[in-house]
Amino acid sequence: MKIVRDRDGDAVRVALTGELDLASSDDVRSCLEEALAETRPARLLVDMDGVAFCDSTGIEALILARQAAVAQGTRLELVNVHGIARTTLEITGVLRLFS
């Protein structure tokens, strides 16, 4: 999993590339929580354009990061969600949490 963070106006964008699964979910979660703690942005955009696959542990990582965001007043949004990752998030009913 490749994780790139940059500024996007008043938002912080974290772009994920690779498979969001058991092997990468801990990394993703800690990167997102780090970005939240260090930058405290109004919005944290998680760019899912490069995410080819997402399983339940990946979803859990996103949800836990979202809870950390809500706790400090940041909105965490998923952008460019498509393909298998989108289907998985839709079927599990969590996609609407992130838009």
Binding site: I59, I63, I91, T92, G93, V94, R96, L97
Partner: peptide, 29 residues
């Protein structure tokens, strides 16, 4: 269904997934 894949109903008309009644997994919100 809380975040769970949809039940599958088989009738003489064929297979049908029950896509309604959906919400997110437990203990999130």
């Amino acid at each position: 269904c809380a975040g769970h894949p949809p039940p599958l109903l088989l009738t003489p008309q064929g297979p049908e997934f029950l896509w309604e009644g959906r919400s997110m997994p437990l203990a999130i919100e």
